[in-house]
């Protein structure tokens, strides 16, 4: 049970939140080719190291926020966002 720092609620058990995965920018749906769109849908960097990811403070403030987490150690960096 790792501790995830919510910008509103402070450090919380990860069971209070939901991990929404790697941040992947959404291409413009009007101009994106299908290839670009499906890269956005399916391809992930999946690094063994630092990744920027989204969490949802499901049992707390219900806020989506991003943090940086090292997937090799589960170390979490000061999110630096508010």
């Amino acid at each position: 049970m790792i501790v995830v720092p919510c910008p509103n609620c402070g450090p919380r058990n990860s069971s209070d939140l939901r991990n929404a995965g790697e941040v992947v920018p959404r291409p413009d749906p009007q101009t994106a080719s299908l290839h670009e769109w499906r890269s956005y849908l399916y391809l992930r960097e999946n690094p063994a190291g630092w990744v920027t990811e989204t969490w949802y403070c499901r049992s707390g403030c219900r806020r989506y926020f991003t943090i940086e987490r090292n997937t090799a150690t589960n170390e979490i960096r000061d999110p630096g966002n508010s």
């Binding site: 720092p5 910008p7 509103n8 609620c9 402070g10 450090p11």
Partner: peptide, 9 residues
Amino acid sequence: ARRTQTPRS
């Protein structure tokens, strides 16, 4: 540190 990280504490 945890205390200072919690905005409403």
